[in-house]
């Protein structure tokens, strides 16, 4: 454009929202099994014909698209941990939030969880509250 207005007073900014109200996501079979398992105090993964175990479970095995079998997983450990002190917009959080990934030996994948207390990466963890999302602490 060979000419442009630069004075902010001459320019208009229109406030608006994307027309999205709310979503209700179906967890799918594997997701339901996983979340129901959490409520019963159990971790479920899926074992595929290849012998590989995936967590969280999925409705199909990624390597061959067949259905696997649910298996219970035990003894989670904290693999990765971060402490978040600001929100996405740079506002300081009232209290830092610890978030991590717990994993299981011999299972591929992990679960994003909130962490309480002084659990460190590599520590075995126990679930403090069997609710989704999970809160864990040092075992």
């Amino acid at each position: 454009m060979w000419s442009k207005k630069g004075r902010i007073e001459d320019l208009i900014f229109w406030k608006g929202n994307m027309e999205v109200e709310a979503y209700e996501y179906d967890e799918g079979n594997a997701g339901k099994k996983f979340i129901e398992g959490i409520k019963e105090g159990k971790f479920y993964g899926i074992k595929c014909s290849s012998g590989k175990v995936y967590v969280p479970p999925r409705d199909y095995c990624p390597e061959d698209m067949t259905e696997g079998n649910y298996v219970e997983l035990t003894e989670p450990y904290l693999d990765l941990l971060t402490e978040v002190r600001e929100d996405s917009y740079g506002n300081k959080l009232e209290k830092p939030i610890k978030v991590g990934i717990i994993r299981f030996l011999n299972a591929k994948g992990g679960i994003i969880v909130r962490v309480e207390g002084d659990a460190k990466e590599g520590d075995k963890v126990k679930v403090i509250k069997w609710e989704w999302p999970l809160v864990v602490g040092k075992a």
Binding site: V84, D87, S88, I97, I112, W132, P133
Partner: peptide, 14 residues
């Protein structure tokens, strides 16, 4: 929406 969003803190950089 199932496995990540409910557990995510209010900062996507996590």
């Amino acid at each position: 929406p199932i496995f990540l969003r409910p557990a995510a803190p209010p900062n996507f950089h996590f």
